[in-house]
Design a protein around this nucleic acid. Structure first.
Lengths: 196, 196
DNA sequence: TTATTATTTCAACGCCTGTAGAGTTCTGAG
DNA sequence: CTCAGAACTCTACAGGCGTTGAAATAATAA
């Protein structure tokens, strides 16, 4: 069984091919983690030769980075979460992050999975948290320990994502997302605005 | 540069060698995850030939399983956590798990890391959670949704371990453990005994 | 139309992996 | 004291990996 396409440039828009590679990369990284998502498998999923992947992205590391641009901008988060009074803050955080990220194949899950074995992915995820949760909007949270409080929030979010999408704890994986958001909202509100 | 030891059986207790291999395996799995912890590296760390590792444990998978026996028995957990009144339950859980597991090189961290890319490790971690957190002691927690409540607790514990030891969120990694246990204790207590 | 460049496949490289089998030395049972 | 078996190393294989360079084709600029 030889390749699908003849050698040489194919007609049409190359951007389509490039996008297909990125899609395949995201899906493979999300499902298998960094090392087990092989360039060969990604290329196959995109119906493309492995060498083309490297032609576009240079190396597997760079491909990973390219495939994990933020799904939303830090400004989106700021306005969705912090641009209101403190009262509903916990709920807004829980709802925004879980509904955006707690879906199979989400780049966040891919990042989370790869984080476990790939320091570059860990760095990216730390940056993501820093830019979105620890950004300027955090200033509205009172107290000198606001970063620590927010890190408790982050840890719970991470744990839910991990337990639901990677580990597959049944009670987390099969519950309606709203049922998870509710108790988390209360916890987050307490972490951010109450005595802890 | 050839090997440290001559060929053939060496004098002394073989159990020492076997234990050294297990130690090396635990440390390598904890630091690098399943794929990147190679049999060759584990063998080198234990000053042993790679083939000896397989002689003892049969395969890399089986080695992983052997290296991750529970650090405490489910009965230990039951008595440490559930054999008192419900009042301090949240704090007992937070303190017991975090002080036992939130240390670098702990088998739990190794398991957590490997879980991300290795289904067998995920199965082991799910079983661990099932045996210890969801065991018979959970019956003392009121409400038909006690398993769901406990899964919220588990998710938070997972998230703290992940954030502190794998991802390396500074506020979690550098805080005194007691400062983390305190707010978690309150949250756990609420999850398990209050309206959520 | 022609020349250049970007896109694509092919074939191969060197490296590392888990694992198997054969050979060597020690231990312990009879 | 003998000898079967356990412990241990050496060598090697087969397969997969990321990556590279050359060749072929299409798009585009002159």
């Amino acid at each position: 069984m030889s390749s699908e396409h003849p050698i040489g440039r194919r007609p049409g828009d190359p951007e389509v091919t490039r996008a297909a590679v990125l899609d395949a990369a995201r899906s493979m990284f999300a499902e298998h983690g960094f090392e087990k998502a092989t360039i060969r498998a990604i290329a196959a999923e995109a119906s493309v030769d492995p060498a083309l992947v490297l032609h576009y992205f240079g190396s597997k590391d760079k491909l990973f980075v390219s495939a994990h641009q933020l799904p939303f901008s830090p400004e989106d988060v700021e306005s969705a979460i912090f641009d209101s009074d403190l009262d509903g803050l916990g709920e807004r955080i829980a709802r925004f992050y879980l509904s955006a990220l707690a879906v199979p194949g989400s780049p966040a899950v891919s990042l989370l999975r790869a984080t476990a074995t790939h320091e570059e992915a860990a760095e990216m995820l730390r940056t993501f948290i820093d830019l979105t949760l620890m950004g300027p909007g955090l200033e509205t949270v009172p107290g000198p320990d606001r970063r620590f409080r927010m890190s408790l929030v982050a840890s719970h979010l991470l744990g839910v994502l991990f337990g639901r999408l990677i580990l597959g704890i049944p009670e987390l994986a099969e519950s309606d997302l709203e049922d998870i958001i509710r108790p988390l909202a209360t916890t987050f509100q307490r972490y951010l605005t109450d005595q802890i």
